[in-house]
Design a protein around this nucleic acid. Structure first.
Lengths: 354, 354
DNA sequence: AATTATACCCAAAACGTTTTGGTTGTCAAG
DNA sequence: CTTGACAACCAAAACGTTTTGGGTATAATT
């Protein structure tokens, strides 16, 4: 690999001049520059990223460092999200460093290593919990970062994030179901360790309240993560006396909804919006949702918009523009709920299942 | 950020000793080491990655640098693949640097930058073409790399790769169709710039030949990439006299098959394996394939096995074990067709559509 | 008592850049 | 003829590690 020294020798100038020529400084003669550039091309010179970094230059790389969930229920969403984020980064001319963080590993260590040691210019967090140590850590490290999701104390902590309004989303679902005549609506929830899961459940409770329904604990499943647990929860609910059974089931994500579609027919229940059928809804609108049988009524998570805004925020922070930025893809469902704190609305996609 | 100097000062030793203590060398007293480790923890010291790199140390990072396709037909596969690769890298304790390479950008530049400048320990290529400049380039740079897919001259070039045997796969499909009575089988192909696409088409031709069928150019679509082009091709084929029409359509990937499922009913044709219906097959077995209506008969691409083997090969190369390695997930469908050249068999998944 | 071995430590070089704080020479203005 | 401005260049420091090639005690061996 050719270095700046090789070029300097060949050109008969100092390495300073080579560096400045290549970086477009004005204090080098145009002829000299052209000669240097020609030699650099000839030698196939490309600057060593590590050396450049060590000088505190930008890496043009951002990290995506989600905490890995033990249950891989969220894996399809992870793949979708990562893919979209990679494409979005590409549009900003950034590389994406994907570093998964295992649960049991020392969280602080991982993020300090990412933040403080010149590997990346900024970090995107995901899988935020109601109370998440990582926020304060990254703030103290003064690394540009944006979270996908928020903690409970987001107002006080004033960190930048993008979140999808799961609560409002599920409330829309409840409204939809209520208007279709449903009065006994069950909630099939995932593990409640992450904020978004709680948020969606919150939407369920608020939705019921708004329509004067009371929450029946027997109609709430939690910590569901695979077909077995869904099946168990469903059986319990459907063992209730006919008039106490749910007529609709709101799932915390598309995968749980998918399991419902698999389990219910086996128990002799039909799924759909007709009277006598059980209505089922999901959350995310993953690519398979529209192909399910019946097609799944769900909330579409605006993944592309999310990634776009995440990157808009992060690149602004990296450039040290602490002021709120304007977004490259302004969205009707976008609200600024604080400085650099963005809330996006999921879209209710009504299909055949509810 | 604390540096090695801060620790040295506090401990009253030289930076050499700090470095060696932290890196587990034997020439430092156990008491000294413990003191140094304690101070390091206290100061929340984490070594600067750039500095370490500059010394030629490993980065524990590998790059995934696919060439971006202009048509995004392959996008769902890209997402799936990237996600699985990230998870696989995680299991090897590696970070994954995703760098998309745009078509029009100077290819050489990108890969030289990745390879020569200490950002990553190795590279995974994808979207290989029959003749692909990148292979020779990376070989000349002496960077560890593995390709997903192969060039035409893979025997001569002797570079490591993992490929899925698209030719054998499609041949299996043809056999399946033939045995179900089909004699007029159409092929709906994507753009043929990438090797795998040609390979699949090759399987189609060979399959026909094996069963004594002759290829009818009117039954071959190429360069299909969206619903419109699929629709046009289909209409042309179905405008043929009844006895010359295809009774089965083999698509080059699941997305094209999906388009077929959308287009055919609108033209008054039913899809399935019954006489009178048109049989449709895909390739990839993306997550949605089983949910299509009718469920798609397709070839399952072993993405997890592919990524596992890619990483087995790459980590071995990084460790300088040029010898073929043993694979952590030995697969029945795995063949070693050359040193470090692995071929995996796709699995025929028969569902309702054919 | 002199030599050798061993344990422990360190100064300086090296990695390849960018940045700092100059110097030198030329030309125009005074 | 002097001064100042400007263009063009450069030596050295800096970034934070690891590695090289030692050194200096102390203990063990002759």
């Amino acid at each position: 690999m050719a270095t700046i020294f090789d070029i300097a020798k060949k050109a008969g100038v100092s390495i300073t001049t080579v560096s400045r020529a290549l970086n477009g400084y004005s204090d080098v003669n145009e002829n000299t520059r052209q000669m240097i550039v020609a030699i650099a091309e000839d030698l196939k010179y490309y600057p060593n990223a590590a050396a450049r970094n060590l000088q505190g230059k930008k890496t043009n790389t951002i990290a995506f460092a989600p905490r890995l969930n033990d249950h891989l229920e969220a894996e399809p969403f992870f793949k979708e999200f990562t893919g979209v984020l990679a494409l979005a980064s590409f549009k900003h001319d950034l590389s994406l460093l994907v570093t998964l963080v295992s649960q049991n590993r020392n969280i602080e260590e991982v993020y300090r290593e990412l933040a403080g040691t010149g590997r990346v210019d900024g970090i995107i967090l995901a899988d935020i919990r109601p109370s998440d140590e990582r926020i304060a850590l990254l703030q103290s490290l003064k690394t540009p970062f944006v979270a996908f999701g928020r903690t409970q104390d987001y107002q006080r902590m004033k960190y930048p994030f993008v979140d999808v309004d799961g609560k409002a989303g599920v409330m829309k679902v409840i409204e939809h179901l209520y208007k279709n005549g449903h009065r006994r609506i069950a909630y099939m929830g995932e593990s409640f360790t992450l904020t978004y899961a709680l948020d969606r459940y919150d939407g369920y409770r608020q939705g019921l309240k708004d329509f004067g329904l009371v929450e029946d604990p027997r109609l709430v499943g939690s910590n569901l993560q695979n077909e077995a647990s869904v099946s168990a929860a469903v059986k319990q609910m459907l063992a209730l006396p006919a008039e106490e059974r749910p007529t609709a089931m709101v799932a915390g994500n598309d995968y749980l909804a998918l399991h419902l579609l698999e389990v219910l027919p086996g128990l002799g229940f039909s799924i759909g919006k007709e009277p006598g059928q059980i209505a089922v809804t999901g959350f995310d609108d993953l690519p398979f949702a529209s192909f399910l049988q019946p097609a799944l009524t769900t909330l579409r998570q605006p993944i592309v918009a999310t990634c776009t805004v995440l990157l808009d925020l992060l690149t602004a922070l990296i450039k040290n523009q602490s002021e709120p930025v304007s977004f490259s893809e302004p969205d009707p469902g976008l609200t600024l709920i604080g400085p650099n704190q963005v809330l996006l609305q999921p879209e209710l996609i009504v299909r055949a299942s509810a």
